[in-house]
Design a protein around this nucleic acid. Structure first.
Lengths: 238, 238
DNA sequence: CCAATAGTGTCTATCAGACATTATCTA
DNA sequence: TAGATAATGTCTGATAGACACTATTGG
């Protein structure tokens, strides 16, 4: 068998295993648009490009794969995201020029306030608006991974309110609805949106109001169980 | 750092990567029950136990991870399943007594006829009824993986007809409905079930009939696009 | 004819879509 | 008061649940 240029690790047991990485796609909602966290690669492969805040699974530090995802996200944002969901695992010999490699991808969501301060102080970590990210030449297959995460999030917006984890802890229904509209790609009837959320009892009314422009809007918070809830009936796809 | 007993591979680059395996959970529907394909482990770790028809990713043979899943399934059944869907990746230092390991799991479906002959001739591969599998002491965390696959399939039964790939190529609506009832765990109104399938136009009427007992039943075949279809409204969960 | 299974008619309940109306704030 | 945004009333349409009914086979 011919020897390939490869990132694969060799062993005395005669089994070569590919390089194993984790790539979380961390989204947030800010200024009426969806943003994704990108990191500038100042060394190593794909140097100079921007990419996902991922890294290699460290079997000494990490008890499981999700721990790797959390570790990398904390490294880049200084906080744990309230939503972290395994997305898909991509492994082949084409995605990394060094050879066969595998990445376990995650979708993560966080409010913008929670990590704005830290991200703003660091120059190699940035929130990039989703459209702009799509036009950048990113490292490896990170562009495709972002597309997959975005599509999954679109589906979630049709039958759950888990996208709400991309909002700050307290938010208005208008904000939550607009985020869903962004994800789904079409406007939603305000009545439909509010009805289903009220009936499913997924939010806590903080009692506080936010005022800007017209009538003050009630501020809500997500109930802990809300990420698992699934509506029986979906919103209409665009 | 203390040296652990580990299945991890070492390298001259100083990166240790865990053992990488693939574990497909292949279901079929036969004699009014759901069965899962198990393989007897006659050597290696967990010797003597039954487990999933998985194996180690071979970076020489396999172009991508899904290819590994297909290869292992063909090895055990001699045929390619018509449905193969990535499930979840589990990786931690506890699941394999040898140390840190990772498995990329798949849900696969196939009709019983398609592989009955081959499976019957081999003694170390067996279809096991799902309840019975739950009572066996399986290798590694394969019991949990089967549970996860089963739960995913239950969800699919609520909003799609992809479970139909567990039927033979030609099947009756009664068979498809009963399979869904098994998965969901409750009876479905015949009218509801037929209506949604007819409206979504997911099946091809072969024109043939199957007769047994009463009035002959029409035989259908899945349309190629049917696995991706998603009903806007779910069946009620139990 | 009866038993058995396949397939349909039809009513109700639920909930998303549509859109008008009312409520509560600031300037 | 006007303008803006939040929140609600209410009608329609689509579709799942319930269940009775008809259809087609074998014996």
């Amino acid at each position: 068998m011919n020897k390939r240029a490869s990132s694969a690790r060799s062993t005395r047991h005669g089994i070569e295993t590919p390089l194993l990485t984790v790539d979380p796609v961390l989204f947030t909602y800010h200024e009426k648009s969806l943003k994704v966290l990108l990191v500038h690669r100042s060394s190593g492969p794909e140097e100079g490009r921007w990419g996902l805040p991922g890294g290699i699974v460290d079997i000494d530090m990490d008890d499981d794969i999700e721990a790797t995802a959390r570790r990398k996200l904390v490294e880049k944002t200084s906080v744990q995201p309230p939503y972290l969901d395994q997305l898909e695992t991509i492994g082949n010999r084409a995605r990394d020029p060094r050879g066969w490699s595998v990445t376990v991808c995650y979708t993560a969501l966080i409010g913008h306030q929670a990590c704005a301060r830290h991200v703003d102080t660091v120059s190699d970590v940035r929130w990039v608006e989703l459209g702009a990210a799509g036009r950048m030449k990113l490292a490896f297959d990170h562009r495709e991974i972002i597309d997959i995460a975005r599509e999954r999030l679109r589906q979630r917006a049709l039958y759950s309110i888990s996208p709400g984890y991309a909002l700050d802890e307290e938010f208005t229904l208008a904000e939550l609805q607009h985020l869903h509209e962004l994800l789904i790609g079409k406007t939603i009837q305000k009545r439909s949106f509010r009805r289903r959320i009220e009936q499913a009892d997924l939010l806590i009314d903080t009692g506080k109001k936010r005022r800007e422009g017209g009538r003050p809007a009630a501020l809500y918070r997500l109930k802990p169980a809300s990420s698992g809830y699934r509506f029986v009936r979906n919103l209409e796809a665009p």
